[in-house]
């Protein structure tokens, strides 16, 4: 299977750490992620708000490029990109009216879309294609003693997904347990972080962030583990805003699953860009495994 990699816009900015750790882990595992040439913004929620069909068409261009470049699947580590690309794929495959419209839109820009390339999330590729057994053989450093709270957010499993459950997502759980961590189950694991609504309705969104952080703390989690750049940014960069709004003193590192996987594969925190987070994970990592 040839994977066409779609980094997504935030990979160049707010989630450079996700991008760095994704590439480092893919390399360590020997997964070939070739960037789709000339990919564009997936459309995501703000563009869907201006016009939902416009957003679907923008994602369709990426699918067309992937097909053209001979990829079997579009792979992204961003849950928002995954959601939009999957929506475009689903509309093309299952909604005849939208299919016709997308064919016209693609032909207008000199592209063709046949719906051949699948849409996949990196977490799905790592857990289900590559598999935990193969990863386990490559683990050099067990993360024993680390208590983690997997947080999935919305868009890996909702509204439709080809690998994750809408209500009880669990793809990260098995992986993190295999890496030696103690996995804690939060009732808030599939709730919303506020996503890009943080930019327009911040004061309201802090409540959502507060509830997720509070539950992680109540469970005794050392860190929250995510698979989405928006989840990471909101829970990490706005943690001080939550603290001042709610009089709390949360200081919970929010790391990407690729970063913990990378550590277990023997990569250094620097190689995984772990210094980029607002809430430092250094203390926790020192305590558990001298990383």
């Amino acid at each position: 299977m040839r994977y066409g990699y779609m980094p997504g816009c935030s990979s160049h900015a707010s989630s450079v750490d996700y991008e760095a750790s994704t590439k480092a882990v893919a390399k360590a595992l020997g997964i070939d992620l070739v960037e789709i040439e000339d990919w564009n913004c997936c459309g995501t929620a703000p563009i869907s708000s201006v016009n939902p069909e416009m957003a679907v068409a923008l994602s369709a261009r990426n699918l067309a490029l992937a097909e053209e470049q001979g990829f079997d699947a579009v792979v992204t580590a961003c849950a928002a990109c995954f959601n939009m690309l999957y929506k475009a794929w689903d509309n093309f495959a299952n909604n005849p009216g939208m299919r016709k419209q997308l064919e016209e839109a693609m032909s207008d820009i000199g592209r063709t879309l046949k719906g051949k390339a699948e849409v996949r999330h990196l977490l799905d590729i790592i857990v289900n294609d590559y598999g935990l057994e193969k990863i386990e053989q490559l683990v050099t450093k067990k993360l024993t003693g680390l208590k983690v709270v997997p947080y999935y957010g919305c868009l890996l499993g909702r509204p439709k997904s080809n690998f994750e459950d809408a209500e009880e997502p669990n793809s990260m759980d098995g992986l993190l347990a295999m890496l030696g961590t103690e996995v804690l189950d939060s009732d808030f694991k599939a709730r919303c972080c506020g996503s890009s609504t943080i930019f327009t309705k911040r004061s309201y969104m802090l409540r959502l962030l507060h509830d997720i952080l509070e539950d992680a703390q109540r469970l005794g989690g050392d860190m929250i583990v995510v698979a989405c750049p928006l989840c990471q940014m909101n829970l990490d960069a706005y943690q001080t805003n939550v603290n001042s709004a709610y009089g709390t003193s949360f200081n919970i590192p929010v790391v990407y699953f690729t970063q913990l996987l990378g550590l277990a594969l023997g990569l250094s925190p620097q190689q995984l860009a772990m210094d980029k987070a607002f809430v430092s994970s250094q203390k926790v990592l020192n305590r558990v495994s001298n990383l």
Binding site: H12, S14, V16, N40, C41, R61, A105, D108, R111
Partner: peptide
Amino acid sequence: MLAKGKLGLAPSRVKNVDEVRKLIDRYR
């Protein structure tokens, strides 16, 4: 974000940006 190198100062551009513009204009 700037201090963390998470601001991405130089914009990343699509080579065939006209295609993206055409799609946006089509629906606008």
